[in-house]
Simulated scan of single mutants.
Amino acid sequence: MDQQIKQAQAAIDQANSSVQQAEAAVQQARSNENLARVTAERWANLLKRGVVSRQDNDTAQMQYEAQQSNVQALEKAVAAGRSNSSAAQANLARLNQLQEYLTVRAPFAGVITVRNVDSGVLVNEGNTLLFRIAQTDRLRTYLNVPQVDAQAVRVGQAAFLTIPDLPGRKFNGTVARTANALDPATRTLLVEVQVPNSSGALMPGEYAQVDLSVPRSDPPLLIPGDTLVVRSDGPQVAVVNPDGTVHFKLIQLGRDFGDRLEVLSGLEEGQQVAVNPSDAIREGVTVKPATAAKRP
């Protein structure tokens, strides 16, 4: 590519030199044309006075016409030379543009996370992934919000991210945009949350939990995850009656929030349930309830 650019630059220099020579020749031809014109006018005046013969006058007139034709021919040569120079400059611009393709420029500042090529590798146009770059100063995370909560999600709404590997830390985020339509397969709304990451504590690709506080007109009943008892006849919880007796009740579960479970039916608000019921907790036994420690 460098050799082709040098050849193109040499072609431009040669074309410009030819144009300069042609322009100098035009100037000389115009001078000769002016001299031939003055001479032809003089011979025409002398012919009117009868001092010179008609043949001598015709010779002077023909020399003037020849000089005019020579000027026109040289002017066309100058135009052709300028055209050649423009074509050479366009070729050089094309080569310079092609040379710019040798440098891969990212559309934004970031960190290269994947490199699939090395020096000397053949790259095919359009089907080779060269690099993957991540913009880490602001990260995006996507979550699917159930249909029952979709109406309450708004752009600009606050969200909080927690990372299992970074206990005790919360990262503030904001709802940037939504799909504005539910997925017909899952009946969920795709939501994008953007999180500032100027400190670089978060890394692209990490697993995160998003806490998107959405007010609900009919909030669900939640129980701790360690109160669930799974048996062959279905999920159950050990309910402690007011008299201290234990009664296992079948429940219908909703969503799983990790440390909490949504109960759709089978329980009522205010009922007490046993946490981590052991094998000693059986139907009808009497226990002494104790308040569990509050979760952080």
Rank of each mutant, 00 (worst) to 15 (best):
V51C: 02
V51R: 07
V51H: 05
V52G: 05
S53V: 06
S53M: 09
S53F: 01
R54G: 13
R54P: 15
D56F: 09
D56C: 08
N57E: 14
N57P: 07
N57G: 12
D58N: 15
T59Y: 06
A60H: 05
Q61A: 12
Y64A: 15
Y64F: 14
E65T: 14
A66T: 14
A66D: 11
Q67F: 09
S69L: 13
S69W: 06
N70T: 14
V71P: 00
A73C: 05
A73S: 14
L74N: 08
E75P: 01
K76W: 01
A77W: 03
A79I: 04
A80Y: 03
A80P: 04
G81T: 04
G81W: 00
R82M: 03
R82S: 03
R82L: 03
R82G: 03
Q89I: 02
Q89T: 03
N91S: 13
N91L: 02
L92H: 00
A93R: 01
R94K: 07
R94W: 00
R94Q: 07
L95V: 00
L98P: 00
Q99E: 11
E100P: 03
Y101A: 01
Y101P: 00
Y101G: 04
Y101D: 04
Y101S: 09
L102H: 12
L102D: 07
T103H: 14
T103L: 14
T103F: 06
V104L: 12
V104Y: 08
V104F: 10
V104N: 11
V104S: 07
A106D: 03
P107R: 08
F108Q: 05
F108W: 07
F108E: 09
A109Y: 09
A109P: 00
A109I: 02
V111D: 04
V111S: 09
I112A: 10
I112E: 00
V114M: 02
R115I: 08
V117A: 08
D118I: 08
D118F: 11
S119F: 07
S119W: 01
G120K: 00
G120N: 04
G120T: 02
G120M: 09
V123W: 04
V123S: 02
N124H: 13
N124C: 08
E125P: 10
E125F: 10
N127P: 01
N127D: 11
T128S: 07
T128N: 07
T128M: 03
L129S: 11
L129I: 02
L130P: 06
F131T: 04
R132F: 02
I133A: 12
I133S: 08
I133N: 04
I133F: 04
A134Q: 09
Q135G: 10
R138M: 12
R140E: 15
T141Y: 12
T141N: 15
Y142C: 02
L143V: 15
L143P: 08
L143C: 05
V145S: 04
P146W: 05
Q147L: 01
V148D: 12
V148I: 15
D149W: 01
Q151R: 15
V153C: 13
V155S: 11
V155C: 07
A158P: 02
A159H: 08
A159W: 06
F160C: 02
L161K: 10
L161Y: 03
T162Q: 15
T162M: 03
T162V: 06
I163D: 15
P164W: 03
D165L: 13
P167V: 12
P167H: 10
P167C: 09
G168H: 12
F171P: 12
G173P: 04
G173Y: 07
T174M: 15
T174I: 14
V175A: 02
V175T: 08
V175R: 11
A176H: 05
